[in-house]
Design a binder for these strands. Structure first.
Length: 661
RNA sequence: GCGCCCGUAGCUCAGCUGGAUAGAGCGCUUGCCUCCGGAGCAAGAGGUCGCAGGUUCGAAUCCUGCCGGGCGUACCA
């Protein structure tokens, strides 16, 4: 309802200003910081004062007197040096909000969100967790805003990282396909955790003994050519790890619609098609001189904002403009990752004429069926994927440069609109705080010790595994649940602990804005008090408890009294109740802001504030002992509203709403 | 060198397209269970918004220059 009123007010002001003063302005309408300043406010008269050369206050009084009544807004008043404060018709607002009609947000276009994208060669760690939680929340946000969303998790199953682990199995461990396959089925082994250590081990070996790097080269070649035991081993490893990742993400409620795999992009020659396009439109050229001689490159000025036209020739010691170009095809004829990414991005928009994957079902979950790409036969039941209007790539900020290249390629090919709708949904990395390193027993070099935090590194085996963190959270929560609920059996306690753990973890990953580096710290991540997921969940559980008890207190079958407009009219004059209604009814507004700003943290913050307002109310009001039935009906309606709104926001953030805790 | 990001309370962070007295959590101090379960509520102490200019009726927010810190700038991904 807030969105609607905001829009109405803005439109009324726009019309008025155009008619009365002949000016067009972007009108700022904001939520006043102080409740006494009304429900919505605008400082527009300050801007207007300049145009009209009159005092803001004077303009404001005139405006308040002359503006046609706005439905839903009870009064406008001039305040301060010239603000206009609007107050809502409280009863109408409450009725609308209690009815729970969703206001539209944006157009129902099709969006693709690509996220998670973990190399299938080791266990997921906290860095991947931030990606997956942000990505999955973005998916939920867009769906809540009525977009058609396709969640894709790209699997780089033929890259260096997989090759390294395959090489480790083969050359270091001397294990063949059947051995590794047995390992993946061994219930006593967490295969992805096993590979975590193996990957660190072979990386160390490569560093200590560079001659062993021939193993990597040989494996990589086998993977790309899809031939021999090493290739089969690659498939076994990647498939098994993808399975582990899906399980891990499933624990957090993260799901996908389709897994596009690099192996299919290669086999189906997506790149060949993209390459022809790029050559035909002169987006890339064959370099003949300098360090990139023999490569197909994209000129630097195409993707770098700073590349000024007519840059001076090479400066001594500096990089020439020519050498600053981005290599797309290596001198040996193989394509770089960016090249493949360009092809993939073109496919997402349906711009790779005639080329498409085929699909096979991979697994089922509560969220639906998951499909994986296939180069051979596909299932006739497969839905159509791709053909998006907008594409969100959830990738950490360190890959901005590559994302710029992809976008530039689309633009160079003449797909200007698609380039603009290629959104790099970037976020800062998750690093380890010094204390966290100490707790993990990680020894730091002098260089690392001087830094404020240490980068997570799969290659070095440096990091906190997603499963381990979740397990720790569950155990912590479990101890707490047990101590509070003697009456619940072990299974029930564990279920609740799981919900709390997921809520805590997802909220933790969302409360920071995307540009903030998270210096991971166990103490903070394991906190259940203060601004945390469980705090928000607890508010909802409290609302549930009240409603449950209330229902029990009623005669069977008789519904509780719902407030009449008269009840609302009367009791919402109480400023505290009114402020509460406002505070807990902003989920739609918060969603709109989060979608527009592309910032899930806004949703997290709003949910926390709503929970705070509700907890405060809960504490100072004894609803079930209220003797005035009229007042009680209003209070109960607010409890129901708070529960619905909190649950809604938690749902968008992927946080479970426990029955009790 | 160049590009992007960050610098706000002891710590961790919000602060939207400039707007009214700069906010929250943690930690610290102090209250609050004859209660719908305290994973809670209330109060208090704590801030030259990195520094210096500029634009403006108005700047934490926009512009410029410095100073710290981080990340990019691969024929790795």
């Amino acid at each position: 309802m807030l969105l609607t009123l905001e829009k109405r007010l803005r439109e009324a002001l726009t019309t008025y200003l155009a008619k009365r003063h002949g000016v067009e302005l972007d009108i700022v309408v904001e939520l006043p910081r102080q409740p006494s300043h009304g429900d919505l406010a605008t400082p527009v008269c300050f801007t207007l004062a300049k145009h009209l050369r009159r005092s803001p206050r004077q303009i404001a009084s005139e405006l308040v007197a002359e503006l046609e009544p706005v439905p839903g807004i009870r009064s406008l008043e001039v305040a301060g040096a010239g603000y206009i404060n609007a107050r809502f018709d409280r009863c109408a607002y409450a009725l609308a909000v209690l009815a729970g009609v969703d206001e539209p947000i944006g157009e129902p276009t099709k969006a693709i969100v690509e996220h998670t994208n973990i190399n299938p060669n080791k266990a997921a760690h906290i860095g991947h967790l931030r990606n997956a939680v942000l990505g999955d929340t973005l998916v939920r946000m867009l769906r809540a805003a009525a977009r058609r969303v396709e969640a894709q998790n790209y699997i780089d199953n033929t890259g260096v990282q997989v090759a390294d682990v395959v090489a480790a199995f083969h050359f270091l461990r001397n294990l063949g396909v059947s051995d590794v396959r047995a390992l993946t089925r061994d219930p006593g082994v967490r295969f992805d955790h096993y590979c975590w250590d193996l990957y660190a081990e072979i990386s160390k070996r490569f560093e200590a003994d560079p001659k062993s790097l021939v193993w990597r080269a040989e494996t990589l070649r086998a993977l790309e050519e899809c031939e021999g035991d090493l290739a089969v081993l690659g498939e076994v490893v990647a498939d098994a790890i993808v399975d582990c990742h899906l399980d891990t993400m499933g624990r957090l409620g993260v799901a996908y619609d389709v897994l596009p795999r690099e192996s299919e992009i290669l086999k189906l020659q997506f790149w060949a098609a993209a390459f022809e396009l790029l050559k035909a439109r002169d987006a890339i050229y064959l370099e003949t001189e300098g360090k990139n001689a023999g490569c197909w490159v994209m000129p630097g000025e195409m993707f770098r904002a700073d590349a000024a036209a007519g840059t001076p020739d090479e400066e001594p010691g500096g990089e020439s403009e020519r050498d600053a170009a981005k290599v797309i095809v290596r001198s040996d004829g193989t394509v770089t990752y960016v090249g493949k990414d360009i092809a993939y991005q073109l496919w997402k928009f349906g711009l790779l004429d005639g080329k498409d994957f085929r699909y096979l079902p991979l697994r089922e979950s509560a969220e639906g069926r998951l499909w994986v790409t296939s180069a051979g036969a596909g299932s006739p039941d497969a839905p159509g994927f791709g053909h998006a209007t907008e594409v969100y790539n959830v990738i950490d900020v360190r890959q901005s440069y590559l994302q710029d290249v992809v976008r530039a390629a689309l633009e160079a090919l003449g797909f200007k609109e698609q380039a603009e709708r290629s959104i790099h949904f970037s976020y800062e990395m998750v690093a380890l705080s010094p204390r966290c390193c100490a707790e993990l027993g990680i020894e730091l070099s002098h260089e690392e010790r001087a830094k404020p935090y240490v980068e997570v590194s799969g290659r070095k085996g440096l990091g906190v595994k997603a499963d381990d963190l979740l397990d720790t959270l569950i155990e912590t929560a479990l101890a707490e649940v047990r101590s509070r609920h003697d009456e619940l059996d072990e299974e029930e306690c564990r279920r609740i602990a799981g919900q709390i753990a997921v809520g805590a973890l997802r909220y933790f990953m969302l409360r920071f804005t995307r540009t903030t580096v998270i210096a991971f710290d166990f103490q903070e991540a394991l906190a259940f008090e203060g601004e945390t997921g469980p705090y928000v969940q607890y508010a909802a559980v409290r609302a549930r408890n009240i409603l449950r008890k209330h229902e029990h207190s009623l005669d069977a079958g008789r519904p509780g009294k719902t407030p009449t407009p008269k009840d609302l009219e009367r009791h919402l004059e109480d400023e505290r109740l009114w402020q509460l209604v406002l505070a807990v009814s902003r989920s739609r507004w918060a969603l709109a802001r989060a979608v527009e700003a592309e910032e899930p943290a806004q949703l997290a913050r709003n949910a926390f504030q709503a929970a705070q307002a509700f907890n405060n109310f809960y504490h100072q009001t004894h609803i079930l002992t209220e003797r005035d039935p009229s007042l009680q009906s209003v209070q109960l309606a607010i409890v129901r509203l708070a529960l619905r709104e909190l649950s809604g926001m938690m749902g968008v953030m992927g946080m479970p709403v426990p029955e009790r805790m």
